[in-house]
Design a protein around this nucleic acid. Sequence first.
DNA 1: ACTGATTATATTGTATACAATATTGTTGAC
DNA 2: GTCAACAATATTGTATACAATATAATCAGT
Lengths: 215, 215
Amino acid sequence: MELKRADKIADKLEELVFKGEYKDGQRLDEIRLAEHFSVSRTPIREALQRLVMSGMAEQIPRRGVFVRQPGPVELIEMFETMAELEAACGRFAAARITDEGLTRLKTANDRCQQAIDEKDALRYYSENEVFHQEIYRGSANSYLEKEALRLQNRLKPYRRVQLRLRGRMKQSMSEHVIIVEALESGDAELASRTLRNHVAVQGEKFHQLMATLQN
Amino acid sequence: MELKRADKIADKLEELVFKGEYKDGQRLDEIRLAEHFSVSRTPIREALQRLVMSGMAEQIPRRGVFVRQPGPVELIEMFETMAELEAACGRFAAARITDEGLTRLKTANDRCQQAIDEKDALRYYSENEVFHQEIYRGSANSYLEKEALRLQNRLKPYRRVQLRLRGRMKQSMSEHVIIVEALESGDAELASRTLRNHVAVQGEKFHQLMATLQN
DNA sequence: ACTGATTATATTGTATACAATATTGTTGAC
DNA sequence: GTCAACAATATTGTATACAATATAATCAGT
């Protein structure tokens, strides 16, 4: 651990906000947090700045920083953007992915299948993440890859719920197969289009997502 | 001005880095900057954090922060990503742009044409920015809009040079016309494709960009 | 009793002091 | 003369003290 305390605190705070420990609009009291983490206000303030920059909190000058849980509209917008980013990754990857990348992609996909066979939703959730990350990587555009990873991470807590959808995992897998084939054959359009629809929140997925936001 | 000093300093620093006042790899000395801006290290550190978060500088723990000017590869990657973001905006805008939005878009485009008529490259540069921002807005996805604005701003200093290309402004305009028509007729594919190619750095634009990086 | 102004309090923003760690310079051994 | 170890120095990271401002609480006047 060569990180400074502020970084560890920021990670912890992000996790807490992710988990929904803090409600929307709640003020993040510097002094309370400082006491809670047994540090001074300085590293707390640095951590809060990070939260603000990443969009998880809002800062009102001379008032403080307040957690900003995304509402339904913003969530839909973020998923829509994610779908477009993934579509872009797929478009590039179709032309650029290496043999090694394809191998890794297939391996990741196999593990997704295993998770389904074992009816292990949690594992599918994490293997699926790897699968998508391999596509980002396959785009051979590290800037785009970084942006995709950033948004993927931000949406993490909300993607989780989609797996509860009955039969969603199987449909997801069949889409994976099409994506792999498209990338293998270099069909940029197909890869792009399939990924966009794969990630997009539509139909039943939409209602499921909305339902989980009532909390 | 209800901003705090740290914000103003951050803006100033961003501008300086943009303008190339600091060379790649140069260390941003907290104490020197504090003296230069006549403030203490605290707001300087906050400003530096902002630079790091926005990717304009890199922080090495217990070593300091160093400016990170994008190299040729990263620039290309960023332009590629920008093209995809704009393509996405165009795709959505084709279906969602309002009549008012279309009007604003056409107005912006008219001003681009005026700038060309007056051979005012600098004005074309700024009016063109507005034109694209109207497309972001037309996507009716404020998250995507924000991301597009962020990258547009980051690439600002590098887009400038493209206008020097002989005949580029005219070609750019004719592409604008196609984009406007596509959005008006709701042709998502055409709008998306045209925007992607409009923004992408290819052919002569690529060499021009590379040439300006030798400094 | 209610509203407005004024004071008191709390909280953010900034400056400074201190601690921890990396870098540099010096000294000594080989 | 070179390299290694150690001391000296400089710089980042953290804590605390102080200043500025917003919120609350109190009090006067109607």
